[in-house]
Nucleic acid binder design. Structure first.
Lengths: 194, 194
DNA sequence: GAATTTCAGACCATTTTATTCGATAAATAT
DNA sequence: ATATTTATCGAATAAAATGGTCTGAAATTC
């Protein structure tokens, strides 16, 4: 092989991601993915078993990237207050760009794909774990006052999910980010030890 | 009728324009147009004879708007130099937003629609006429030095068409506008009477 | 040069899609 | 009121598109 098989696979994922992002799952055809990959349609099936399989790979890759970026953004901050603030802001910000991942998390039309459930659960678990850690350290450093950080983390992540809906359904972006700032302020001044 | 028939027609055109713009001709379905118009699919056929018919209406409307806007932008300027400069800049600018019209003018895939040819010709004729007028007035006012304004107008418009290709194929927008400025400078200092 | 990987092209079954056709409900006119 | 025209829609259909398979042939590796 001139290029690694994995490399070709990755190329296809990248190409497909672009098309999926632009047109959505249904409107994206295997023909297009093949064309854009400069391959025959059947060649795509050498690397992936189905259209759904490609979509899964795309979404998983995006989920992984989001996870990674989130952690980096959090680790850059050293105090729990900034970490939590960054988590909330960065998360909403990033989610806007990871369209397939987001679509996969939300879309009813895609809901019957079993793998969506798995990715969602895995991702949720990861997020809750991250927030739990932030909260616990905050409590240790006496920055936060929380009885049960584990429970609070779940509540926080759940609440953020609720925020996504107006953010993505209403196209009036920007506005929500402002409200988000307010929310953060409110949340913090009810949380931070004075 | 509660609303004018023409009003409903116009609504459909507007709704369809958005979808065509987003997904292109092929990927836009009658179902979607109907849904977005809050009508049954078959109701659309009460107003339009076919999908192509809707597309034609969309493109024609956009073409008309472009023509109108162009003329306004030109009439606001009083000296031929500004007029010509505005024509070039405004044209490129606007063309970016009128996606369907532009797609109709360029796409091979849509080329076999006969009405495209007509719109194209009509629009070209209109543009050449506009430029001819600008050039002739420029010559009268001794701002330009041109032997044959009619010929020069055709050449100019044709050259501008050539510029569209890199502008729309390359996604590196912005850059080209700079080069365009240069081109205009070059064009003008080779044209304007000193 | 045999085995394996990579791929294109024809092909098929199924699904989508544009379009047609009554049926029916409003709206309007008589 | 009743007839007539206008507007809407669900269901049916025929044609096209699409996901996926199969065959076999280059290219590559062993």
């Amino acid at each position: 092989m001139v290029v690694l098989k994995d490399q070709v696979r990755d190329d296809i994922i990248n190409v497909a991601a672009k098309i999926f992002t632009r047109f959505g799952y249904k409107k994206t055809t295997m023909e297009e993915i093949a064309m854009a990959s400069r391959k025959g349609k059947s060649s795509i099936y050498y690397y992936f078993s189905s259209k759904e399989d490609i979509f899964r790979a795309v979404v998983e890759k995006e989920a992984e990237e989001l996870r990674k970026d989130l952690k980096v953004a959090i680790n850059e901050m050293d105090n729990p207050i900034s970490q939590l603030k960054n988590f909330i802001l960065f998360r909403i910000q990033k989610l806007k760009t990871l369209n397939n991942f987001h679509a996969a998390l939300k879309s009813d039309h895609l809901a019957h794909f079993e793998f969506i459930e798995n990715i969602r659960k895995e991702y949720d678990r990861d997020e809750i774990e991250l927030v739990t850690r932030i909260l616990k350290i905050g409590v240790e450093k006496e920055k936060f006052v929380i009885d049960d950080p584990d429970l609070a983390a779940v509540a926080l992540v759940t609440a953020l999910k609720g925020l996504e809906i107006p953010l993505f359904i209403n196209k009036k972006h920007g506005r929500i980010e402002d409200r988000l700032e307010n929310l953060i302020q409110f949340l913090f001044y009810g949380l931070i030890k004075r």
